[in-house]
Design a protein around this nucleic acid. Structure first.
Lengths: 193, 193
DNA sequence: CGGGAAACTTAAGGTAGGTTAAGTGGGTGA
DNA sequence: TCACCCACTTAACCTACCTTAAGTTTCCCG
């Protein structure tokens, strides 16, 4: 198993000896997920955070009218999971599925806790990741509260140019919070002033 | 100076000896903020996270039409800050001001970093706080994407009953993402089935 | 290949929520 | 005590975005 993508990612925030690296990787579980298969369904207790090695995952919630709302996309090199469910070990409210055939590695919550106590450096890693996550959610909240759909779309394209290319429009629509019909109309209409 | 509110809060997540407590409190800066005064203005580099001892603060962003969008309220026992600005030591996009005369304690980012290296337990504390923050922002994002204003209001009342009582309506309107006029109309109209 | 499901488009009509504007009442500082 | 400000209300009008529905294209799976 080649963990270099993950170990590179980790080493951007904390430094590990070879022994520490192999202890860390010994806790990892590997999994292939084919397109449209689920890592996680609403109402299940999420096993733990997952790191994407290849492919593309997303998390979304389903409202009572059956509409999906994308919370996050996770291309290779990103973490994804249902934080609420992992932290509280309660059934979550998110679905996580693969938009492309994907490979991930994931940790049991109990192994993560072990990792924290044996290698406290990992507290730091996950603190930093959580902080970055807070920043990203805050940014998105501000956009949702203060920008019209057209500018939210423009911001998405600026922020995730590679995703913009490979995602179907309806996924982007769901992320920025409009219907696919409206996004289509927007894109095929003359740019507003 | 009486730090019991803060130390109680900290001890819910990590355990400190008396020496550790006094080292921690030695890093704290105390500040009184009168109603309508700012802790933080857009474009400034935020000094660091602040813990509210008494009073009530809020953070908000200002859009290009001059409208405020409340990101967070912070009653006593809560942390508030501009995470983006603290982490990156760059000018932030948030204003933080006091809705009531308040007292806070806050940490320089550099002291926080010292604290992490001398007492790694604090990595854990702030990891947990950041994780809870992620959960809260995710929840709010889901509400904004999938619930109509009336239900966002109901959820706010359920989630923060004490804030609902003491906040002026226009602050709540700004938090749930509607105009004060619309919230007023909503509240004075017959409940929708 | 062929057929069905998705993704995308177009368009008509509807609605949640915004804008503007005017008025009321309570609180507070000079 | 008065003046002013600010929170809140009301109401008429407006628009960004949604709903429904139909049609076209693409693409995948058998």
């Amino acid at each position: 198993m080649n963990y270099s993508l993950l170990l590179d990612h980790v080493s951007r925030h904390i430094t590990l000896t070879e022994d520490e690296q192999s202890y860390f990787t010994s806790l990892l579980n590997f999994k292939k997920i084919r397109k449209k298969q689920f890592l996680n369904q609403e109402g299940e207790v999420s096993k733990g955070p997952a790191f994407v090695m290849s492919g593309l995952l997303r998390s979304y919630s389903l409202d009572k009218n059956g509409f999906e709302h994308v919370i996050q996309f996770a291309p290779p090199g990103w973490w994804i999971g249902d934080m609420y469910s992992v932290v509280n070990q309660q059934p979550g409210r998110l679905y996580i599925d693969a938009l492309e055939d994907s490979e991930i590695v994931w940790l049991w919550k109990s192994d993560l806790d072990k990792l924290y106590s044996i290698l406290p450096k990992f507290e730091r890693l996950f603190r930093i990741l959580a902080e970055n996550s807070v920043i990203a959610y805050q940014d998105r909240l501000i956009s949702n509260l203060s920008l019209p759909a057209r500018e939210r779309y423009a911001q998405f394209c600026r922020q995730y140019p590679s995703l913009t290319e490979c995602l179907p429009q309806k996924q982007v629509a769901s992320y920025i919070g409009v219907t696919p019909e409206f996004l289509s109309k927007m894109l095929n209409a003359p740019p507003h002033h």
